[in-house]
Nucleic acid binder design. Structure first.
Lengths: 324, 324
DNA sequence: ATGAAAGCGCTAACAA
DNA sequence: TTGTTAGCGCTTTCAT
């Protein structure tokens, strides 16, 4: 920057102000500086800037697994929205483990990240206090709220109600659920929602018809197997997300069970491959792209000065296809 | 850091040396400092460190689209390997566009990134000279080499030969190819490999049986459609990757064509959903996880001082399933 | 074995 | 309207 200042015959402060526009600069001076900048191909050093301002240009996206297509699409969307404002997205995988979640949050603080977008699984609901204290904007994308931070929450009541009515209408009674991990923070809201609406349409969700596991293909397969081998085999199974649902499908194949003939199957999320599997997966869509957009919006609002926490609702939607 | 120094009754230099281990420190001093660090919950400011050393702790992963499951898995793998050494992965999407590729490379320089892992598509082969000049480690994951930079290259001759023999053995003669974009740097090596080995097993690849397009589902569908509606409809189609192959599958469905009955289909990559579609996709596996591992290894070697460019070969493998 | 001090490149008070 | 300057927190040379 000093080179530019010298070339333009001004002080480095003036160069800084020309570049940032934070203080009026005489037209002529501005032009001289700008051409010196162009001449020398100069550009600001973001690291020095970060040190001085205490804020970097990196936004952490902290999710269980970027290889899960839901999070991959969320990452893509978030980046598309943030790039225009000059922010970069650092992707971090927690594997839904509490220690990783905490470690990554700490790291985000140390690195003075410009913001954090996270889907926490096992964090305590007060885990973001430190970040907030450090003035780092946070957006949580989850079924439940985590303290007083911005929250992108699904509006899924209608969709789940429709899904369950759809299942009930096909004459099924006994419902099974492949739920999330038992020790996730706040339990499993998707499971609770299913319970609530199941009751309303006369569906039974026995205690032993709920199996818990991680949000992975393997866990989905295993959970589904347990359900199918239980005394009171469910006639319809809802899965906590599409990845587990696909695991369930593969297991059905192995067990020689027909979907939806022998058992109906419903997922959550509507990821890319939901229309690729056969039968096509009936699911409750939670739009990753829009979640990314909304998260970016909330984050930028905070960066721009909003301090009051907001909750934005994103509508889920029932998507009946062939598996139920 | 000054707080720690004061608390321990030493200079900040000593604190720095205790933390970095770059100079011997008396056992007693070390302990005093360490407990002061623990006491105050101190940790180094990575931004200040980056400013001073001229190297940040961020590694850019620059790919066409992180929502493509191949790249998503590559990202995951790269992070798993790099995290232990304290590096973070910044994911950048180019949409395979030259201007984005260049812009992101420039940005990586300005940000003083610790390294760049990239799958370039339309860059000139000298595009990395500037980065190299700035001393920033680069690893390219691509079919072709890009100048004198580290290169993770597929070793695919055997796999492609097997694939084509497999197709030939099933009695097909006319081969179609859904290839990559026409203006990609270095053409389309996958296409060329197919051409070479097709000749060897007596398969014909007519000029009009090659269609070009992006590596997307939509482009795959469109390319496949053109092939199927051409005068000399191919009896087998090879796709540049699995995403396009799945697009082709969907198009086959729409056109009322049976796979592999009416036309055999082979993909590239073996992404997650290759076993999810029906029929299961026959493909040429290119192991994303290992690509990530190898890229990380090469990158770390450079960070640790190697300057001589290396090429690492990763074996592709023919995976016969139901679509061909 | 340890300390003093310069300086990485920038921003923002304060001064003129 | 512009300049001077202090420092952000660290690493590293040089001195002790």
């Amino acid at each position: 920057m000093n080179d530019v200042a010298r070339a333009a015959g001004v002080s480095s402060a003036t160069v800084s102000y020309v570049l940032s526009g934070k203080r009026p600069v005489a037209e002529g001076t501005r032009r001289t500086v700008e051409s010196a900048v162009a001449e020398l191909g100069f550009s600001l050093n973001p690291v020095a800037r970060s040190l001085r301002t205490g804020r970097s240009v990196m936004v952490a996206l902290i999710v269980p697994d970027i290889a899960n297509p839901f999070y991959a699409l969320l990452a893509r969307s978030l980046q598309d929205e943030l790039r225009g404002r000059g922010y970069h997205v650092v992707v971090c995988n927690t594997e839904a483990r509490r220690d990783e979640e905490q470690a990554l949050l700490r790291e985000a603080m140390h690195q003075r990240f410009a913001g954090v977008v996270m889907t926490p699984f096992r964090l305590s609901t007060t885990a973001f206090d430190a970040l907030r204290g450090a003035g780092i904007p946070v957006v949580v994308s989850a079924d439940i709220a985590f303290g007083a931070v911005d929250h992108v929450a699904p509006d899924a009541e209608d969709a789940v109600r429709q899904a369950l009515r759809h299942v009930a209408d096909s004459g099924r009674r006994r419902l099974g659920v492949v739920a999330g991990p038992r020790d996730a923070t706040g339990g499993d809201p998707r499971l609770e929602r299913i319970r609530t609406h199941a009751a309303a349409v006369g569906l039974q969700v026995e205690e032993e018809a709920v199996v818990h596991g991680e949000h992975t293909r393997a866990a989905g397969a295993e959970g589904f197997r347990r359900l199918m081998l239980s005394r009171h085999r469910p006639e319809a199974v809802l899965c906590v997300n599409d990845v587990t649902a696909v695991g369930a499908m593969e297991m059905a194949d192995q067990l020689g069970l027909d979907i939806p003939g022998d058992v109906a199957l419903v997922g959550h999320d509507d990821v890319d491959f939901a229309t690729l599997v056969r039968p096509r997966l009936t699911t409750i869509r939670y739009p990753a792209r829009e979640v990314g957009r909304v998260a970016a919006r909330l984050l930028l609002e905070q960066i721009d000065g909003r301090t009051q926490p907001h909750t934005a609702r994103v509508s889920a939607e029932f998507v009946p296809r062939a598996s139920a």
